[in-house]
């Protein structure tokens, strides 16, 4: 039996807006195995981002259990959750990634400031991450001086610089042209296959979803797992 890194059971998320309540996630169950590469698809407004944020500890469920990397994160308070996040999860968002007043290198270094590392050690980690995403020659550029694809690569470098177990990416290729999008997907696939990171990616792009070894669809608050075995010759993710 493969170890589960994500285990959601009966998770419910309800938004109340002006007296009306909207059930975004309805007693949802999801398990993702360690080392898996999973794509999450679904119509706009179906709650994909909400689900991803719950898994990353950015948001709380109204009901149910959210266990990630062996921790029941619903039980953690604000600062414990922040510390857990820093250690466990790397985020890549769409167009919501880099701090504009910092260079690529400084952005990537950010999460390392939370770890007990020397300046030299931090520099080494950042250099490695830059190398990995092929941005070594753009290290000292500000986000405004980078292309969309380069920005996303910098964001991925930052997501992995602390060596987290889990990478959560919310539409990382949403704004990009095909070529840049493919580069990003290649990169995420490499993180999964070469470094053994578990990758969970939200996407609208079916080509992107094809790169994943497993695709789940979110609709009306529930998950429909369509391609578990079919798309993954390795199987069992």
């Amino acid at each position: 039996m493969t170890e589960r890194i994500i285990a959601l059971s009966s998770v419910t998320k309800i938004y109340t807006r002006g007296g009306e309540s909207l059930v975004v996630l309805d007693h949802l169950d999801l398990e993702v195995a360690r080392g898996g590469f999973c794509a999450l698809m679904g119509p706009s407004g179906s709650g994909k981002s909400t689900l991803l944020n719950l898994i990353g500890g950015l948001d709380h469920a109204d009901q149910g259990q959210v266990e990630v990397a062996g921790t029941n994160i619903e039980a953690l308070d604000g600062s414990a959750l922040a510390a857990w996040r820093a250690e466990t999860v790397g985020f890549v968002f769409q167009g919501f990634n880099l701090i504009p007043v910092l260079t690529a290198r400084e952005n990537i270094e950010l999460p390392l400031l939370l770890a007990p590392l020397s300046r030299k050690q931090r520099r080494k980690h950042v250099d490695d991450a830059l190398e990995l995403v092929g941005l070594a020659d753009r290290a000292d550029h500000r986000p405004s001086q980078l292309s969309g694809g380069q920005e996303q690569r910098a964001a991925i470098a930052r997501a992995i610089v602390t060596d987290p177990k889990l990478i959560l990416a919310d539409e990382p290729t949403g704004d990009l042209d095909r070529e840049s999008a493919d580069q990003i997907l290649d990169l995420l696939a490499r993180l999964n296959s070469e470094l053994g990171k578990t990758v969970l990616i939200v996407t609208h792009d079916s080509l992107a979803a094809e790169r994943a070894r497993r695709v789940v669809h979110l609709d009306k608050g529930r998950l429909v797992d369509r391609s578990e075995a079919a798309l993954a010759p390795g199987g069992g993710n």
Binding site: L58, G78, A82, R85, I99, L110
Partner: peptide, 14 residues
């Protein structure tokens, strides 16, 4: 606002 959101996601505290 957005910078703060990013910092929080990375694990920085209030």
């Amino acid at each position: 606002v957005r910078d703060i959101g990013i910092m929080k996601a990375l694990g920085f505290t209030n």
